[in-house]
Amino acid sequence: MQSLREIQRRFVEAVFSPEASIDFVAGSPASARDRTAIYRRTIFTNYHNALSATYPVVKRLTGAPFFHTAVDAFAHAYPSHSGDLNIYGDALGEFLATYPPAADLPYLADVARLEWAIDEAHRASEASCAPESVLAALAIAPPHRLPALRLRLEPSCRLVASPFPILRIWQTNQPGYSGDDRVMLDEGSDAMLIRRGDNGISLERLTAGDHAWLAALAAGGTLGTAIEAAQGADATFDLGVTLREQIAAGTIIAVVDM
């Protein structure tokens, strides 16, 4: 008799490799093969459905057959490690970036990253925000300590940037969109702040400097590092203006590490 672990290991192998031996399944070889195939179909259909819900624009851009084939390859390359199917698929953008059949769609990976950011924003925790308390905390910080400060972003905030006009691509592929749906790939790059507000998810276009600044803060960098990143991306970056705007907008919710 095989151990439970061995049976489970062989079953998983058989799901992903139809040619694997399945003599651990009861019944005739033909019936065992048919019954194992039912599980294989269900599993991949589950992944198609889950990722279709997370990546509707990627699916619309590629068409369902291409999308499902890509998801099958993705599920082989990036197995799920959680019993929560809702958080599966974060790496689809990374996968599509080097997926040979998607080579003609160079923007596809970034559209996937945008859709994942939207999905994460939906699931993020709540945070109360009081701009006056953030301003007060900054006002009492000694000037020499300012570069070492860290600013906490509202938990749903996500930063996405692409050399392609992915915001327009995303917008023109929303259900019910009726307007000019032609997007020129050389229209220019996009940098965005995605967040959840009282009226749902918002996608706001940022300057390259503001994006670099917020992305550095979101990654846990100090204010000093974030300023350097912003100035590197945009020589006209104005810290005073951006700071006031993003505090007022509720993007920055706390000053930490004082």
Partner: peptide
């Protein structure tokens, strides 16, 4: 049921072998 092994999750419900060990 079980859904995966060795850290890999298949996000579906699989029957157990009905043994004393299981």
């Amino acid at each position: 049921c079980w859904s995966g092994i060795a850290g890999r999750h298949l996000n579906d419900l699989f029957p157990l072998p009905y043994t004393d060990e299981a």
